[in-house]
């Protein structure tokens, strides 16, 4: 905790700015303030030995970085080749001419567009409704009086340890009984009741919010709905945003639940569509088409990641210290 934070975490600042009502009280400072990275130039000048060390370590880290990124670059490169150029030896990294029409062809080759739509429907409805359910629950668990609150919370938390494969067959039977197999409902319904991991983190975050401001609001005659909406929600908005993004990406990338429920091409989510692409077009050795579809599947999440990088990385870093 003594680490000087060169850039104070945005959450505290945003929270304070977004909640002028709380400005009178002490600022809600998250329990752990730390920033990962961007600490290079600060501090005393590096010694010669440190500089040489940095060169060696930098070389190793770069080599690792190339290993990390090379497969993805190769994937993109393959997506721009002709079917024959894929088998050229030695391989070419920059295909010439680049076959951009692969990215036009791919939309007609399978239900890619409906896959994107289905994934978006599931991910948005799950995260919006489930996120709201998680947020109010977190507020109740953190700040409200309720008998057996701790026991209830711990049982919910213990449920995380039960692997989904243990629950999937009974859940499948429930949805089969309700006639909902091969629709998007089995992917949406179990999740809109809230996500206990999100409840856990929001509850932790709320620990840093002083009870006094809630008591003050009560004395002013605010009901709990009002307190949540006007006071708590603005404070925990940054934490909600971070959890929201992480959850959205997890739902977007999910594969096991979709594969057991969805058969018809028109209801399949994006991940299933590209897996189907893979199975279908590999036998025709149309690797550029497969890779183009996979690249398209990666783009939304990569975009979200690039935009919200700081928030994502900071909330992940917090995961370890809070867990």
């Amino acid at each position: 905790m003594s680490t000087p934070a060169p850039q104070s975490p945005p959450r505290a600042a945003v929270a304070a700015a977004a909640a002028p009502a709380t400005a009178a009280g002490p600022k809600p400072v998250p329990a752990t303030r730390r920033s990962t990275g961007r600490r290079a130039p600060a501090g005393p000048p590096l010694t010669r030995r440190q500089k040489i060390g940095n060169w060696i370590v930098g070389a190793i880290v770069s080599l690792g970085g190339i290993t990390m990124i090379a497969p993805l670059v190769w994937m993109f490169s393959t997506s721009l080749k002709t079917r024959e150029a894929v088998f050229a030896l030695p391989p070419e990294w920059i295909p010439s001419p680049a076959q951009w029409e692969n990215y036009l062809r791919v939309w007609d080759a399978g239900p890619l567009l409906s896959g994107i739509m289905n994934s978006a429907v599931v991910a948005v409805s799950v995260t919006v409704v489930g996120g709201a359910a998680s947020a109010v629950a977190a507020y109740a668990f953190a700040k409200m009086r309720l008998p057996f609150k701790g026991v209830i919370f711990l049982s919910l938390l213990a449920a995380i340890m039960i692997p989904f494969p243990t629950l999937m067959i009974p859940q499948f039977q429930m949805f089969a009984f309700a006639g909902l197999v091969d629709t998007l409902w089995p992917l949406i319904l179990p999740a809109i009741f809230g996500n206990i991991i999100m409840v856990f983190f929001l509850r932790q975050y709320l620990d840093s919010v002083p009870d006094a401001i809630i008591e003050a609001a009560k004395i002013d005659g605010a009901g709990h709905f009002q307190i949540f909406w006007r006071l708590i929600f603005p404070i925990i908005r940054p934490a909600i945003a971070a959890q929201f993004i992480l959850w959205f990406m997890a739902v977007w990338n999910d594969y096991l639940a979709p594969i057991i429920y969805l058969n018809s091409p028109e209801v399949q989510t994006l991940q299933l569509v590209i897996a189907r692409f893979n199975a279908t077009y590999a036998s025709q050795t149309d690797y550029p088409l497969i890779m183009a579809a996979s690249c398209i599947a990666l783009v939304p999440v990569l975009t979200v990641f690039v935009i919200f990088q700081r928030q994502i990385i900071e909330s992940i870093a917090l995961t370890g210290s809070k867990g």
Partner: peptide, 24 residues
């Protein structure tokens, strides 16, 4: 964790596979 330039960049690079869809 060293005082070194470019760590933020590499952190992002190493993290890209984590957020990528496992199917892709």
């Amino acid at each position: 964790n060293r005082r070194m330039r470019g760590t933020t960049f590499f952190r992002t690079i190493y993290y890209i596979p984590v957020i990528s869809s496992i199917a892709a």
